[in-house]
């Protein structure tokens, strides 16, 4: 039987920081092998949404989440769900490249090592596979034991992508992954993303509208904690249904 196209389904999701409601009943699907861009002004809830998908909000005190988030049909907020196992399935990339201050090799295998993998051939294979998939293998293959901090920002970010890929996730969440990078490094990351979607589902939060329109298959527009509109990127950027979306995309906001 063919897999359903939805990889993540979010139903009536509410998220509160204390008394403040950051997400107000969001219902949205994220599709397999597609890039979904989440756009909206600061404070609209886009990063909060991303963090609920791999339960990073668990670490924030005083957070309440209601509604359901399912990964591959499985409720990730179910009591029997192991958050560490979940985060292996749902990798995350942040705005600032954050390699650990050790070698490229050790960075990539970090996730595997903490899950107990010790076999050298398995680790070697994972390093090569992940660095290749992150499109940085050719640049670093001769210096795998150099410190990852010595690389450029764009290279560091691709090392971080490789680190995410090493645990073989299903979903990669990206929170403004290129906003700290120069245009050339950004386009390298974008190219890598287009390649990665053959094997992964990607959700990217971005403030760069051009980036959303260039690389995403679907776009979701958020405003004040609500999903205003989502759909195929070409529809959202050519003919959005809601005036708020059109105003934001055309830069007529506020």
């Amino acid at each position: 039987m063919a897999e359903p196209k939805e990889m993540i389904t979010v139903q009536d999701l509410h998220l509160y920081y204390g008394q403040q409601e950051a997400l107000r009943g969001v219902t949205i699907d994220f599709h397999r092998n597609e890039i979904t861009a989440v756009i909206g002004p600061s404070g609209c809830g886009k990063s909060s949404l991303l963090k609920t998908i791999n339960r990073l909000n668990d670490l924030v005190p005083d957070v309440t989440v209601t509604g359901t988030v399912k990964l591959n049909g499985q409720d990730i907020y179910a009591p029997n769900m192991d958050a560490v196992a979940l985060r292996k399935e749902v990798g995350m990339l942040f705005q600032q490249p954050n390699p650990f201050p050790f070698s490229i090799y050790d960075n990539v295998i970090y996730g595997l090592r903490i899950s107990g993998e010790k076999r050298k051939n398995v680790l070697d294979e994972a390093v090569e596979r992940s660095l290749k998939a992150a499109a940085i293998w050719d640049e670093v293959k001769d210096r795998l034991h150099d410190n990852a901090m010595s690389l450029s920002g764009g290279q560091q970010q691709r090392i971080c992508i490789a680190r995410v890929l090493a645990t073989q996730p299903k979903v990669i969440l990206m929170d403004e992954p290129t906003s700290a990078l120069d245009p050339i490094s950004s386009s390298e990351i974008e190219r890598t993303m287009l390649k990665l979607k053959d094997d992964y589902s990607i959700v990217i939060v971005t403030r760069n509208m051009q980036q959303a329109s260039r690389i995403s298959d679907r776009t979701a527009f958020f405003l004040a904690g609500e999903l205003i509109e989502d759909g195929p990127t070409r529809d959202i950027f050519m003919q959005p249904q809601k005036k708020e979306t059109e105003d934001y995309i055309s830069g007529r906001f506020g």
Partner: peptide, 9 residues
């Protein structure tokens, strides 16, 4: 062409 202009700038 319209799509490429709108989406790829």
């Amino acid at each position: 062409s319209f799509e490429m202009i709108a989406l790829q700038q």
